[in-house]
Amino acid sequence: MAKYIVRRVLQFIPVFLGVTIIMFLLQNVVPGDPIKLIAGDKAMSPEAELAIKADHGLVVTDENGKPVLDEKTGEPIPTPLIQQYFNYLNGLVHGDLGTSYKRNLPVTEILLQKYPYTVRLALVGIVIEAIIGIGAGIISAIKRYSFWDTLVTLSTSILVAMPAFWLGMLLQLFFGVLCKNWTNGAFYLPISFNANGEFQDWVYYILPAFTLASVSTAYTSRIMRSQLLEVMNADYIRTARAKGLSRKAVIWRHALKNALIPVVTYIGIDFGVMLSGAILTETVFNWPGVGNEIYLAISQRDWPIVMGGVTIIVIVVMIINLLVDISYAFLDPRIRLGASSNKN
């Protein structure tokens, strides 16, 4: 097992380097000069621009942090891209993701401020996904071709075909506007100000979390349904039935356990995806999470935040996937660890 983990971590390194290098190259070809933008909308003096570039390691500096000028042209010397990338890696190893261009605050500080909101939203989302997705999947498998089965199939198709941000707005419309008197606007506000209790806080997570989890809830129920149907046709279940166990007992004691394995795997991987921060859900609900922060940073060309955010996301997703794979291997001994276990 230890060997397997080491191999997975080693496999991850080229992917990580690939992602960060691509990001790094892209940010250098995006139109718009991030430094000029710092002044908001004013033209800044060239000297101020140079000083800021020196602060962020974008030009070559001497040991005092002063920009070094080219001897011939008298122009500042831009730091070579490779050097900038190594500086980034070096900082990363030391837990330093750089400083925001715009706010002059450490990127780690900014992102740590936002990440708890994304994590909490993902947690609520995953609970919703598990309960509704698995529940609906079981019902439609057990009562196959019934009204409930049709309802589940239809609603999952609709959920998948709906833009999630539009769903979020529909929920706001329904709970926040049409049912305003009943909900007292509670579902509409992202997080309460005068919340005295945790519960009231958590109420505000429901709509965004449901929006975030909508598509994967639909998939969860579909996987649950097809897995359960498949397992119920398996030989050992038929044997159990033949031995006289009731259908209910067979389903709850035997079939469900086995059918759940791929479902749990899917949910686990999806948790990683949710932790990446959902730009659209967070935008619609003004959620103060990492997705929103990174998206705003892209608009402002605040690259240290973008790079830092992508770095953290990629690492988190990788760890979650690794955990999922390991637990999968524990849950299902048939999976030999050498087998291809890449997830997407």
């Binding site: 715009k102 005295n196 402002q300």
Partner: peptide
């Protein structure tokens, strides 16, 4: 607004 980002808690 763009610069806008996070939000307060209680």
């Amino acid at each position: 607004t763009l610069a806008g980002c996070g939000k307060k808690q209680d």
